[in-house]
Amino acid sequence: MRKILLTMLVTSLLWADSAAARLQIFACEPEWGALASELGGELVSVFTATTAQQDPHHIQARPALIAQLRRADLAICTGAELEAGWLSMLQRRANNPRTAPGSLGFLEAAAQVELLERPQRLDRADGDVHASGNPHLHLDPRNIARVAAALSQRLIALDPGNADAYRRRGEDFQQRWQAAIATWEQRARPLQGMRIVVAHNDWVYLERWLGLQRIAALEPRPGIPPSSGHLATVLAKVQQEGATAVLYAAYQDRRPADWLAARSPVQPLRLPYTVGGSQRATDLFGLFDETIDLLLEALQ
């Protein structure tokens, strides 16, 4: 009996030790959680703070998130003020200098890429405009490759004992990712010039990558819900200029898109937006597979 107990104790201690030995990663959004899993594999343990059903602008600094950030060796977040309403509070209350801004354990995706729509003027009268530029950068897969490169470097710096494994995984991912980008670009050729309406301005990077043409947004200003007056203007524009689809993310209200679709030939198109946003979008590859499939379907 004693022997069994002792064995159990030793096993549990060893198990706890091996779990603790893995690099703890706190990912603010599902896309970065998925990327960390791709690059870290079994060597890391990933906690993703938000889901595809949650608006990443509107998250509360919940106790569960503070507790997870306290344990993290590395936090990877979008940055560019996307998490302005919650991340700074988590960082202040997590009592964890390893993931403080400016340290090796805090990686801001927005700092690794060139942001679009950097505002010419900063005025809250223009709505919820981000001073550093549009933060929804993961919807251009070439940006994911850039962030992946930076993340691989951080993993190596934080866990040098496993440097070779991280390097291998990083190279393998970059290979597969570049191949996938080539396939997506090939398949998405018909999408060039496709006219779209967007619910919120979070598709800019996808638009630029695929050559989609945005003619209007349902939100009168970023972050301000659509008013009936503004929707009427959008409807007039759609009727005049024509558009194929109105894009909205899994976490967004579908009613304004449905309203527009009921009055014009434009189709409401719910895209996963991030990993977990639909049944097929279980990883980063699935996210873009499905996004392009859905856009192509809408075009037919």
Binding site: G79, A80, P101, G102, L104, F106, E108, A110, A111, Q112, S132, A145, R146, A148, A149, A150, S152, Q153, R154, A157, R167, G170, E171, D172, Q174, Q175, Q178
Partner: peptide
């Protein structure tokens, strides 16, 4: 792959 890693990565200290 190695080339991509090298060219795409920016200095670790880069922060916005």
């Amino acid at each position: 792959g190695a080339l991509l890693l090298g060219t795409l990565a920016q200095p670790v200290a880069a922060q916005l």
